[in-house]
């Protein structure tokens, strides 16, 4: 089932077009990554789904219902620009955020106790935010986002501003929430985290979606059929096929394009020429695919 579905969404700020005929489908229980350079329209999209700004046209459905104000209770949102009330105590702050999401006081208090324990913050519950380290404040910020147990968690650049240790903690929490059935929509420019974390992605550039699908299918499609070969030839005069030749201490390294052959045929032919040290297909990373796609779309 699709938890979030967007159809032909348009948004302009004056003469600047932020989103153009944008479609998006996010399946329930998946981690969905939204990738794109700054100014591509990611934050605009996220703000429209959070009903912070209005769309010009287009339809948005949450659980197959048209988006309405009540849906804020189903959504947890961590903006890119985020903060807390510095002079307020941790537990009071979390209670406030839970209550504006419509959670009852007693229920909220129980959830706060559980979350603080989970992230090792129990002893800090009566401290003010300004007395906490940055890492601890970031954890409190994350709790504030998920305290009402949203069905859809929207994270705008979730790892920006987090130190590596806390980023890892948050990443694990995201995965755990996904396993509990929460759908996560995140925008990021950290491509390596996308590959490990996301089930599906969409690439956004210049207010348009340029590519979407599962990480696996996108990588499958981007395969180049080029193999990287590492070998020690029997004959010193051996001239390897392919390109990008490197020669070091008698070891040759080169790239070879698979034409009408099967990988095994190619490997067999190479084995006849010497000892094979390495033979692997070159699959571009999400980052490389991304850059390639952007260049293609600019070229259009």
């Amino acid at each position: 089932m699709e938890i979030l579905s967007i159809r032909s969404l348009n948004k302009s700020y004056g003469s600047h077009v932020a989103l153009k005929d944008f479609d998006l489908s996010v399946s329930q229980g998946k981690i969905f990554g939204l990738l794109g350079p700054n100014g591509a329209g990611k934050t605009t999209l996220i703000r429209i789904v959070n009903q912070i700004i209005d769309r010009d046209s287009g339809d948005i459905f949450i659980n197959e219902q048209p988006l309405k104000m009540d849906h804020v209770r189903n959504i947890g949102y961590l903006p890119e620009e985020r903060g807390l009330y510095k002079g307020m105590k941790v537990k009071e702050q979390l209670l406030y955020f839970a209550q504006i999401k419509g959670i009852k006081k007693t229920e909220a208090k129980q959830k706060i106790t559980d979350w603080l324990e989970k992230l090792n913050l129990t002893q800090w519950k009566d401290k003010k935010i300004q007395d906490l380290s940055k890492g601890m404040a970031q954890k409190v910020q994350f709790i504030a986002t998920v305290i009402h147990r949203p069905d859809l968690l929207i994270l705008d650049e979730p790892f920006s501003g987090f130190d590596p240790v806390n980023a890892e903690i948050i990443k694990n929490e995201i995965l755990e929430l996904r396993n509990q059935g929460v759908t996560i929509l995140l925008s990021t420019h950290r491509m390596e985290s996308v590959e490990l974390l996301c089930d599906e992605i969409a690439m956004v550039n210049r207010s348009r979606k340029i590519l979407d699908g599962t990480v696996k299918s996108i990588k499958e499609e981007a395969k180049t059929n080029i193999f990287r070969v590492k070998m020690i030839p029997q004959n010193v005069d051996f001239v390897p096929p392919g390109e990008g030749l490197l020669r070091q201490d008698g070891i040759l390294e080169f790239k070879l394009s698979l034409k009408d052959q099967k990988p095994n045929d190619l490997l067999r032919a190479l084995m006849a020429e010497g000892e094979i040290l390495g033979f692997e297909e070159i699959v571009p990373s999400i980052e490389e695919i991304f850059i390639q796609k952007i260049n293609e779309s600019h070229g259009e």
Binding site: N50, Q51, Y77, G83, Y85
Partner: peptide, 13 residues
């Protein structure tokens, strides 16, 4: 202090 965007995701501005 950048709390505002969190608040307006729960309440109308």
């Amino acid at each position: 202090s950048r709390i505002i965007e969190i608040l307006v995701s729960s309440l109308k501005p």
